[in-house]
Structure formats: C-alpha cells, structure tokens
Amino acid sequence: MEAPQYVAARIQQALAEDARTHELGIHVDVRGDQLFLRGQVSGNDQRVRLGEVAHEAAPDLKMHNEIKVVVVNEPGEDEHLD
C-alpha cells in the first residue's frame, strides 16, 4: 500500500502541473481513505477544477474540498511611510 505522504505529494504535483489548474499553494492531507484540500484561490471555477484534478489523481479517496475563494474587500486604510 502506498504511504499517504506519497499519495499527498502526487496529488499536490497534479494540482501544480495539470493544465486545468496550475495551482501551487494548495495544502493536501491524506488521512486513511480521506483526502482534504485546503488553501485559497481566485474563483469558484478554479476551486471546482482543483477538486476534479485531485479526484482523478486519487479516485479511491473520499475528498473534502475545503479550498476557499479569496474575498476581495474594498481597499481600507492607507499606510503613511514617513
């Protein structure tokens, strides 16, 4: 049986290298038969694509896509650099 660390590394590599995603900053955890994805992306479509690519890389694992979409708030207070 493949060690979970290698499975996680393989999934992370797929997320970075698959042409549909190219996402470098996603945290991948494998615990037993469960797969957890965490991180932040710029849109919901990208979050969905990441889930698809991860599932294809490890189809036997139950996936929990906990990736968040970055909320772009209004610019706040200025910083004065004196």
Binding site: V72, N73, P75, D78, E79, H80
Partner: peptide, 15 residues
C-alpha cells in the same frame, strides 16, 4: 499578494 492583503489593493503614501 492579494491573499495576504485580503483587499483589492493596499495604498502606501510616500512623503
């Protein structure tokens, strides 16, 4: 980086 700022942009004022 946008995820660090959490907002559309930061503003820095140089005297």
């Amino acid at each position: 980086a946008l995820p660090v700022l959490g907002k559309a942009y930061a503003v820095y004022c140089l005297e």
